[in-house]
Write a protein that binds this DNA or RNA. Structure first.
Lengths: 250, 250
DNA sequence: AATGTTTGCTAACGGTGTTCACTAAAGCGT
DNA sequence: ACGCTTTAGTGAACACCGTTAGCAAACATT
């Protein structure tokens, strides 16, 4: 009988499973560094294996292929982003909803700026992630990321901060989509009006759009600094949901 | 003396140059088909060469590498998109500005839906296009694409369709960026107020955002059909610039 | 101690981008 | 028509890549 230890989640974990978990973590760590250093194209099983003193086929004991590895680290990156945003949110007094939202959204952009390669693989086209590979992990991590914002948004709805479009102003086809969205994404407040979800979607689209434009460098030769445009959109979004905008510090 | 013929642009073109142009066109055509059939990853010099009965090194007489080839076809794709939007625009009576805008914007999304792979390489992260390779061609094509919308937008400004924020509501740092934007992108109307450019940017960000979200499949497991959300954003955008929204036909 | 399981290796196949030396052809000037 | 020059394209080679199959050593369990 070997020494069965307990995971922090209470799962009995043998020595074998622990070392296995460790090497898997090493694989992901190296792969991710290659991602940020050489872009999405620069992640290769052989290079990762080489760096950790292994050969490429050995990695197949841990990962079912290069695409699956990318999905794995994508999930980790969502976790990172979620942590970063949550930390920024937590750095503001809990009752100060306005400042919390402002800070969280700026933290989102800030993380994107400092992690361009990661952001691109997370929010860009799903080129290599498409196959059926366990994308569920990445999805779950993405859901956790969104939760921070949804929680804050719930407060705005509860506090009736902004004018919510009445239900009869939401087209029927959009209504059913929004319902599905609110359900799967897990908006905390039950019976949140569909109009509010519509506003939320619109706000998210705007911020997603402006950050993608910046990271994907779509106005690169047309606009030197994208921060003013982001702040402008941020201001517009916050105005829409009844949150006070304040210019960024210094 | 050989037979010097005249290009339609008036450039003397020898036989050699003509056949050269033809094979370059073939290269791009095949590469693009591979792009739509096998995704961005599935474009390879060797495969293209194989299909046209050549060997890969031969292609280096026409293209300086695989990345440069991708940039080349990206420029072509912008041309295609521009043509598609322009055709949609031209299919509406010239005086009907509202319908022209509505149709053009829907044409943008429609093209994206029917050309997902192309759209992804055009509007997604610039992964393989980054190196200094003559990206100017793609930029120019992108500029032509935007021109259609800017022309229509100019009419809205000229007709004073919507409320333009006064200049003192445009932050100073944003103002200079917007000026650069208006200049390089070539907004036709001289002295177009900066507030109008700000509104234009905001509208474009929203539409870009919602279409990217759809094509990049970011709400795939959360929303079955993205059209209602697009139409909702479209409605909001048009409302902002004083254009009448009409639901899509049928 | 013997048995089964997991891990990692080597070898191999087929694919990729790219460079270099080289041939054969096409164009050009006389 | 003849040479000379430029060009298009080839073949071989190098260095990568993902992935599969078979095998040997390490490990865990009985």
């Amino acid at each position: 009988m070997t020494k069965p230890q307990l995971d922090r989640s209470g799962v009995r974990t043998s020595r074998r499973e622990r070392v296995r978990e460790a090497t898997l973590a090493e694989i992901k760590e190296i792969a991710r560094r290659h991602l940020v250093e050489h872009g999405s194209q620069g992640v290769s099983l052989r290079a990762v294996a080489r760096e950790m003193g292994m050969t490429a086929p050995g990695l197949y004991r841990y990962v079912s292929g290069i695409d699956a590895l990318l999905v794995l680290i994508t999930a980790d990156m969502y976790d990172d982003l979620a942590d970063h945003v949550a930390a920024a949110d937590a750095s503001v007094p809990e009752q100060n909803t306005d400042q919390r939202i402002l800070t969280s959204l700026r933290a989102f952009r800030g993380w994107a700026l400092e992690h361009r390669a990661e952001f691109s693989t997370m929010f860009g086209p799903r080129n290599r992630l498409d196959p059926d590979s366990d994308i569920t992990a990445a999805l779950e991590a993405g859901r956790r990321f969104g939760a921070t914002f949804f929680t804050l948004f719930d407060r705005l709805v509860a506090e009736q901060r902004f004018e919510v479009p009445p239900d009869d102003e939401v087209p029927a086809d959009l209504a059913s989509e929004l319902r599905a969205f609110a359900d799967t994404v897990g908006v905390a407040t039950p019976n949140v009006p569909l109009g509010a979800v519509m506003v939320l979607s619109s706000c998210w689209v705007r911020l997603y759009g402006v950050v993608c434009m910046e990271i994907f460098q779509h106005l690169n030769f047309v606009m030197a600094d994208m921060e003013p445009l982001f702040e402008s959109e941020l201001r517009g979004v916050l105005e829409r949901v009844g949150v006070e905008y304040r210019p960024p510090p210094e």
